[in-house]
Design a protein around this nucleic acid. Sequence first.
DNA 1: ACGTGGACTGAACGATCGTTCAATACTCTG
DNA 2: CAGAGTATTGAACGATCGTTCAGTCCACGT
Lengths: 173, 173
Amino acid sequence: MRAVAADAGVSPALVLHHFGSKEGLRQACDEHVLDAIRSGGEVDASALGHVLRAATPVRRYLGRALLDGTEGASVLFTEIVDRTEEWLAVGEAEGWVRPTSDARARAVTYVSWLLAPLVLGDQVGRLLGGDPAETATAVRGARAGLEMLTGGLFTDDRWLTAFTAVDERESSR
Amino acid sequence: MRAVAADAGVSPALVLHHFGSKEGLRQACDEHVLDAIRSGGEVDASALGHVLRAATPVRRYLGRALLDGTEGASVLFTEIVDRTEEWLAVGEAEGWVRPTSDARARAVTYVSWLLAPLVLGDQVGRLLGGDPAETATAVRGARAGLEMLTGGLFTDDRWLTAFTAVDERESSR
DNA sequence: ACGTGGACTGAACGATCGTTCAATACTCTG
DNA sequence: CAGAGTATTGAACGATCGTTCAGTCCACGT
């Protein structure tokens, strides 16, 4: 509270006066960040660019909220997953998305992948180029990701079959 | 400190006696979690199973450490990325990994994808089945991920070209 | 001009935090 | 059994936390 007030150049008491409590301020921050993300058009996979280009503070805050399980963040996550699942279903029907055995799991995993560089932004940025706030860094990772999603990373299904074997061995134990 | 001591059934003073300070306890936790992960054999992509099956508290702690930029967690992240890049290079040479235009970015993105369900474990678990601690839930997501990496998600390169177009338009502005 | 309401502040309160310290209980070695 | 070292504790200290409150300053409608 005192740090926030100092950054804003006001007294701690004023922050309380406007937001009621610390929790009130936190909810206001949630709404602000969530609105900032949603305002980038419809919340679906096409928002990729907006999310990746989001300013670093917003990225950090969203990552923290997602991890802490904030109610607003959970709602946003579910929202993105639902729309992504629909979007992938359309693609499947139109033939530009491969069929899957578990549409829900694929949508959830896809979204978590989409959000991964966002949550792990500091780590990714550190290894991909000095400035984590630099857009070019995020773009570089995004291109690498799209390459993997287009045509795949592996040329055969050796890891998929290996995983299946391991999984069956584990679960039968 | 007091909560940790209460959970351990001892006094707060004893925790300080053993770990010196709160920071000392935190570093000890870092080492414990990191060792627990590393003990699952070599730290490379084959550790996928171990990481995914790690107990939920460890997962949560690692996620938080990764996000907070703990030194130990940063070292671990870099370590995994380096070994993954080597591993992918071998696969590329042997023909079971597709070539890429940016090996480093691909390794970083791959690792962040690997860690995503781990960091976002609560969200993923919530949408994939009631119990986030349940192994079956993580396995379901892992299979969906491997499917996407094997043969790809998209059947053509429409999104890759679309992304390239958007990126060039943005960067020329 | 006046007063009413909201923006805004400084000081303080109680709670909680990490930490210190003297003192006690316990467990070995000689 | 005596003694040394370790484990363990309760109480307290100072710092920081979110919050309260009485009061000041300022803008604006009548």
